[in-house]
């Protein structure tokens, strides 16, 4: 990693933290930034300011903070998984959806929404509110596992086959989802649509705690694949000649990405475009070395999703816009602008 890339990463980190702190104050109920700092300082015991407004602190810790943290976790997960999947597919257009994660999650989520009262009564009593999240996570894992298994050729996962199997499984899951949607009632349709547009509205400390390990593990481990993914860019055979264990790399990158994206989708629905846009923007900022791109995508993903969520809850407050709409609506023009500027 060169100095310029280190500086960019440090800058991204600082901006990300600032974005998070400022966004804590923004929403249908505004908290002045000064009060945010006071409440935070009180909480961690840096000061004992007795003048602090109790209501600010309540909103901050019960509602805002889990939501902002969830946004950061999900954004970081989507960003870094996007970069890692692009690395093993050796294709800047790849994204985690390619191996069926999102399609599988959607299928299972729709299945549960449409048939909860008919088929999943037992499960519903056991898992209660978490049934949908659990189903989406299981769906993501199952489809990714199926794609991975189908892609094996003489016992080794083959990237081209994985791509084709991913497309096929995506189509199949899409068709089944369509079928479920067709059979769903009006009310269920509305739930399905909102789930598919994504939202961080369900953020609670309990939710956050449930997905934290599933996202933290990939966030901590994927950056160590930087060298291997750089070598993959030379071609898989060349990577092997450089002493990289290619099967190990493919297995763990797919597993970690599935964990991260599966957990994200489970709590926040489908949030598109982050996995594609963020790594590309990071590359345009400072180069293509994966040791930099992976960490950069994690930071920028966290930042962009935090910002998008601020917009989603302030734009037409108190109504919330689906965050998936915001990321695509604002992300695409910015992305196109960068692309056009780059080509000139």
């Amino acid at each position: 990693m060169i100095l310029k890339q280190r500086i960019i990463l440090l800058t991204l980190l600082i901006i990300m933290v600032l974005t998070a702190i400022i966004s804590l104050g923004l929403g249908a109920f505004n908290i002045p930034t000064k009060e945010v700092f006071i409440a935070l300082a009180n909480k961690i015991g840096l000061s004992q300011n007795t003048n602090a407004d109790e209501m600010y602190a309540d909103v901050l810790f019960a509602i805002r903070m889990p939501r902002v943290l969830l946004g950061m976790l999900v954004g970081a997960a989507l960003g870094i998984s996007g970069a890692a999947i692009q690395g093993i597919f050796r294709n800047p257009l790849a994204e985690p959806g390619l191996i069926g994660i999102s399609a599988g999650a959607s299928l299972f989520a729709v299945l549960i929404i449409a048939f909860e009262t008919l088929l999943f009564v037992g499960l519903s009593e056991l898992l209660g509110y978490y049934l949908l999240a659990f189903g989406a996570f299981a769906g993501a894992g199952l489809t990714a596992f199926a794609v991975y298994q189908i892609s094996k050729k003489n016992g080794h996962p083959n990237i081209t086959t994985m791509l084709l199997a991913g497309i096929a499984i995506n189509a199949l899951a899409g068709a089944l989802t369509g079928l479920m949607t067709y059979m769903a009632t009006e009310q269920q349709l509305r739930t399905i649509t909102f789930w598919m547009l994504g939202s961080l509205g369900g953020a609670t400390w309990e939710n956050l705690g449930a997905i934290f390990p599933f996202i933290l593990l990939p966030l901590a481990c994927l950056p160590f694949f930087g060298k291997a993914l750089n070598a993959f860019a030379l071609g898989e055979d060349q990577a092997a000649l450089l002493g990289i264990n290619t099967d190990y790399t493919k297995r763990w990158v797919v597993l970690f990405s599935t964990l991260a994206v599966g957990a994200s989708v489970a709590v926040s629905g489908i949030i598109g475009f982050i996995g594609l846009l963020v790594p590309h923007t990071v590359r345009l900022l400072g180069g293509v070395d994966y040791r930099y791109v992976l960490i950069g995508s994690m930071l920028l993903g966290a930042m962009i999703l935090t910002l998008a969520d601020v917009l989603s809850r302030t734009f037409v407050a108190p109504i919330e816009l689906p965050i998936g709409v915001i990321t695509a609506l604002l992300g695409t023009p910015v992305f196109l602008y960068i692309l056009i500027k780059e080509n000139k």
């Binding site: 050796r90 294709n91 030379l234 071609g235």
Partner: peptide
């Protein structure tokens, strides 16, 4: 050689 990402010469040689 199947490189399609914008690596610099030095980045490639250090690999």
């Amino acid at each position: 050689h199947a490189i399609n990402m914008a690596y610099t010469v030095k980045e490639l040689v250090i690999m």
